[in-house]
Nucleic acid binder design. Structure first.
Lengths: 256, 256
DNA sequence: AAATAAGGGTTCAAATAATGAACCAACATC
DNA sequence: GATGTTGGTTCATTATTTGAACCCTTATTT
């Protein structure tokens, strides 16, 4: 791994649950030498990617990341466009609705709306969603580039629950069904007791760039509810795609 | 400069105005060799910090940045905390109120509320505010670390208008006055016809981490209005600081 | 109160990764 | 078909990164 990759993997050690880490801790978790870790942190700090708490000497992610993220968002207003529709969908379904964007080889949760229920599905921003075992992942794959699908199916497929599909052929079938239906259904493939439906949000070239999903406890989920949520999530995804692409759905080449 | 710094300075070439750049362009602007530039871009792409457009082969900032930025905001809820007070201040002053956070060597605008007036001051999110020539910058410097102030005053000081203070001694005086008064006043130092007042938002260690400012056309600005807005912006900054630091103003060591 | 462990930070010879001039292929322009 | 531009690649040379051992300070233990 190059030095740049090492620096970035240091950044990736920070999570919502552990947003501040000490030098030794970072060195231990990354596997890098303490001196190396420190040098990388100093470099990152110099550009605002990392900040050091003056009192505890612990490190945390810096404001420079927010700035670049905002520049990206200005060109690619995925969040601004999608969040209002995520809210609407959360209000109408009264279940957890989450929005994700494709990252390196998984989907990244970028926004979540939780319902008022005590018994609800909780998802954190930043949570990574594997492609093969989540409703969002399957919805994404249904409109992803062939290379992406191939890379996913030929990689190692982890079973998160006893319900997780790990047979490439079965997953391919699920993807094909999703493409026909317009939304995906994932019955406890990622977490026991959670049933999700999702639909792909697509760029002007017709390929998926993210997903919107509704996740609910299976206690509150009937086949009729699945179909209802599926149609709603599909409509929301379609609306977001249209708004992103200048109201012009004709430009979506690979339509289902 | 280390390799990590080079990689980050590549990222910093992307702006709101030019969010997508080609390889040769990036190499030219960064001053790095084309091979070096490419290798850095590949490393960054591998972690989702940049993406390459499949059609144009141009590069843009990636979703990995958004993910990390969100993790930061989850721990350090600057925006969540401050936005309600920005709204309140915008409502009570009926002028443009903007919130900024310190980046590497300037303030970054992270939130703006505009009034209903047709004649108003417009500010974009992401806009960089120089430290020496804006109300926000002076307010920040009044409670910044000595190194930061020194670095600012010894650097080159650009005059944006005929009113911009570019004499280090004059700026120092303005900083000292701001520290005593509790808020800064900038009369057309950044843009003709705009008068702003600002106050520093401070971390638990007492040092500034950002600012809140009211910007108004000078046509609507009297000395009395300046004083009124100054007191309001100071109160808002104080409230945000307190909420960020757990309601405990005692921890603000460097009080005015 | 001395000993021990753990954390943050630093040093410098040795090892390794980054560099860049020259190169290819593709496309556009003249 | 000659010329310029862009994206991308190669490999001997060069410069940066590496990490064991080090210091200092702050708990914790004996």
């Amino acid at each position: 791994m190059g030095t740049v990759g090492k620096a970035i993997s240091l950044l990736e050690l920070f999570t919502v649950d552990e947003p501040e880490l000490g030098l030794s801790d970072l060195a231990r978790r990354s596997g890098f030498d303490k001196a190396t870790t420190r040098r990388l942190l100093v470099a990152l700090t110099g550009h605002g990617f990392v900040e050091q708490d003056a009192a505890t000497r612990h490190y945390r992610l810096g404001a420079g990341l927010s700035r670049l993220a905002r520049i990206r968002e200005a060109r690619f207003p995925f969040l601004q466009t999608a969040v209002p529709l995520v809210r609407d969908l959360a209000a109408s379904t009264a279940e957890t609705v989450h929005l994700s964007e494709f990252g390196v080889d998984a989907l990244v949760t970028v926004h979540v709306e939780h319902p008022a229920w005590a018994n609800r599905v909780n998802i954190d921003i930043g949570q990574l969603l594997p492609l093969h075992s989540t409703a969002s992942g399957i919805a994404y794959l249904a409109f992803a580039r062939d290379e992406t699908v191939k890379a996913c199916l030929t990689g190692s497929l982890k079973a998160f629950t006893t319900h997780t599909l790990i047979d490439p052929a079965a997953i391919s079938t699920s993807i094909a069904e999703t493409r026909d239906r317009g939304y995906s259904i994932c019955d406890q493939g990622f977490e026991e007791g959670v049933i999700s439906v999702a639909a792909a949000i697509r760029a002007a070239d017709g390929f998926a760039l993210g997903t919107i999903a509704v996740a609910a406890p299976n206690a509150r989920t009937t086949p009729a509810a699945i179909a209802e949520r599926g149609l709603a999530v599909m409509a929301a995804a379609r609306e977001i795609s249209m708004r992103l692409n200048g109201e012009n759905l004709q430009t979506l080449r690979r339509q289902a």
